[in-house]
Nucleic acid binder design. Structure first.
Lengths: 106, 106
DNA sequence: TTAATAGTTCATAAAGTTATAAACTATTAA
DNA sequence: TTAATAGTTTATAACTTTATGAACTATTAA
């Protein structure tokens, strides 16, 4: 892996976490797989939009998909995704807390 | 935290990981703080560009900054950032491995 | 006080991402 | 064979992000 190429690939995978709908999907898939239409029911919105976001995450190696009959089942590619996502949620919460504490001191 | 707002904030923090230069900076800051000009020396590019990226990460709560004399020192806001970033790197490596194995089978 | 150092901020053009709707494909059911 | 279900793909307009260079600010040194 030469020079900065690794940073590009790494950023590309991280980029797949950077959208509210995609975070919502990762949250939903923490424990078990869901099929497309069940995910759509939870998240709402257009099916074409969800399909595109799922496709991005699958291509980047964040999700796995398996087809069963007419249904496409999506799941996290590994527990690492769930764990990384939880850590970033904690980073957010810590930062909201710090911000709130600053406000209270005024 | 009402409805989908949490997903937006969470995605916003994750988005701060989604750029090659920002990944490179997070990599550099794993063990210790660095000042702006040392980061610039490692990453290369324009100072204005680096400054903007550092500013984004600081605003999103990923980095901390402290000023000492003429120098601005940057560090990770917490070990959680380093850990999340490492996990995502592993997700990348696993996915590259799977891709490579598929190629070899052909 | 003047100049140098160490950055930040601003304006903007180029590139990339997202939401929407329509068209398409694959599988199952009638 | 025809229709229904379950999605995917494609085109595109609106929006967001990024890189660049110039202008600016704050601190230290001469």
């Amino acid at each position: 892996m030469t020079g900065k190429k690794i940073f590009e690939l790494h950023a590309d995978v991280c980029k797949a976490l950077g959208h509210p709908l995609r975070i919502e999907v990762i949250d939903l898939l923490q424990e078990k797989e869901f099929c497309f239409s069940d995910i759509l029911e939870v998240t709402g919105g257009l099916k074409s939009n969800l399909s595109q976001h799922l496709s991005v995450m699958t291509k980047k190696g964040i999700l796995k998909m398996r087809r069963e009959g007419q249904c496409n089942y999506y799941s996290l590619s590994s527990k690492k995704v769930a764990q990384a996502c939880r850590l970033m949620r904690e980073v957010l919460m810590d930062s909201l807390k710090i911000h709130q504490d600053l406000l209270e001191k005024m």
